[in-house]
Structure formats: C-alpha cells, structure tokens
Design a protein around this nucleic acid. Structure first.
Lengths: 158, 158
DNA sequence: GCTTAATTGTTATAGACAATAACATTTGAG
DNA sequence: CTCAAATGTTATTGTCTATAACAATTAAGC
C-alpha cells in the first residue's frame, strides 16, 4: 500500500483543528461492524421512507408470506424478538391492513398470522425496492462472490 | 461433536412444530450484518462485565488516550455521538476517576479531556482483555488475512 | 469597537427499542 | 382431574438516540 504523507509540519499550518488519531478504535472489528450495520440500516430507512416500512417490519412481512398460518411466538422467535414486544409490531401491521390475526381453531390461545391481499401487494412493492437496494450493495461489494464471502465471514463471528 | 439425527420423517413424528422457512430473511445482507454485530457486542459485554465497561466507553478511553487534551465535541464527533449525549458518558467516566475534564485556558467554553493515572492503569487492563477477544475473533475468521478482507468488505458498505 | 452569529457544554425532553414481570386463557402431561 | 406450560397481552423499566433550548464564550462582519 502507498506510503503515508507523514506531515509533521502541521503546527504551522493548522494549529488547532487537526484530525484526531483514531486508528486504534477504527481497527476494532466490532467498531467497523457497527458502523457498516448502521450505514446499511440507515440506507434501508431512506429507501423505504415512502413505504413507511422499517427493517424489522419488512422481515416480518417476508416471514409471514413464506410461513402463513404460523403463530406470533414462532415468527417472533426466529427474528429474536420477545413475544411481548412483538405484539405492538403485529398490531401496527394489522392496523395498516397488511396482516391479519386469525384465531386458531386448533389452539384457542394462538393467533395464526396471514398477509391480507393488500399485504401481498404491498410486499411485492417492498420486495422490488429491497431487491434494488440489495443489488446495489452487492455492486458495492464487488459482486456475488464478495457477497458470499462477506456472509461467510459474518457467520463465523456469530 | 456427534453427527446430527437428520430426521426427515418429521411429518409423522411432529406434525406441528417444524422449522420455518427463513432463507429469504437470512439471505439479506443487512440482517446478517445486524446478527453478527449484536453477537460481537454481546461477547464484548460478557468479557468486560467484570470491568463494568461498555463498548462505547472503551472506545472513548482509547480515543482520549491517543488524543489527550481534546475537547468533548471532538471526541464525540469521531464516534458519531451527539455532544448532548456525550455529557452523561464523560460524566460517568469522570465519577469513576478514569477521566478528568480540565477547563481550557485558551477557550473558556471547552473542556480538555485527559485520562487520570487510574484511567491509564484501567485502560491497560482493558486493552489486554480486548486484545484477547480481538485475537479470538480473528481466529474465528480464519486469520489476519480474513480479518482484513472482512474490514475491506465492510468499508465498501459504509 | 460593536453587533451579531457561531461554538461549547449542559439540561430537559421525547421517541424507539429491548427486557422483565405479571396476568388470564387455554393446552398438555401425569 | 390437577398442575405445569404455552400464548398473547399489558405494564413497566432501562438504555440509547435525537431535538430543542439555554448561558457562557468566542469568532466574524462591518
């Protein structure tokens, strides 16, 4: 890699506002992980702003679509969400007419989760938006090969 | 270490509780990023439990040590923390006797941040703990080469 | 030099998010 | 049948982030 400038005559040019030494913190794996994650999530938020959809809500819709009829606890558990906090989340999606809770006949305690027709249509649009974003991320990484390499490395940390 | 059971005749044994289809969500880059980040941070928390140190506090100590005499706003900005929220953080470290705020003579508004001798000693211990954790993460990744590859890929997302 | 704008640290406040406990209803095990 | 567990729910707490407002001080414009 290229040689550093090593400007030691900084004091004469900008006595006050020179950059901080931060290599020690930025070299930490957890620090870089967090930065990247926040950046990607921020991007998600801006891309999905018009759809008023947050990352966790998108994953809930995708999960319900792929597993219709499952109960709240099952969906919540896969995403690592406490079922107590999942209540508000599902309620919000239900109020928007995207999800419906059908009282299970087999188990009167459980709610079977389904997408409404509106929910299906909404998810189609969301998928398109997400796929565009995902493809852009893959481009940034350099291609599909790099993506798989990244996911593999991330899994080793988990 | 034994081999998995691989019971594919699930339908006859457990009609209800089979695994959910989650490939669609787990394939999302942002999802995997978040999982890995939470896992690494959780690990940090457990490793630093005895030192009662959180990730952000560690990075603040490291930054002050590398840049003594800087003002709060500068340190906070590098870490992406609002200066309003940084006040409580520094106050906490000051109460523990690790950091001191010295009123700057040049700018009577600013506080120059320094580590106390206790802070230096504490940071030495923290560095040792962190280095052990970092080395373990590198081992999990497969080595230094893989670490650099990961950091490079993460940067492309940021 | 004087007036005005910007900076610094601070407090207060609000919102998002996660974690825990407790509860009623219902189910399943022994 | 009895008792433990599961399910959804509410309430509460704590943590973290974002915003607004403020006093003191500094810098900029004229």
């Amino acid at each position: 890699m290229g040689r550093e400038k090593r400007v030691k005559s900084v004091a004469t040019r900008k006595p006050e506002t020179d950059a901080l030494r931060a290599e020690e913190t930025t070299g930490i794996i957890g620090y870089r992980l967090r930065r990247a994650q926040l950046s990607v999530f921020q991007r998600f938020l801006s891309v999905f702003e018009e759809l008023k959809l947050r990352p966790v809500e998108y994953s809930v819709l995708v999960l319900i679509a792929a597993n219709p009829g499952r109960k709240q606890t099952e969906i919540a558990e896969v995403l690592g969400i406490k079922r107590a906090n999942f209540v508000t989340l599902v309620h919000s999606l239900e109020e928007r007419g995207l999800v419906e809770r059908i009282a299970s006949a087999a188990d009167k305690r459980a709610n079977a989760l389904h997408l409404t027709p509106d929910g299906e249509a909404f998810l189609s649009r969301a998928r398109a938006v997400h796929e565009a974003m995902e493809n852009d991320l893959i481009d940034r990484l350099g291609g599909e090969t790099e993506r798989e390499k990244l996911l593999a490395l991330l899994d080793r940390l988990t």
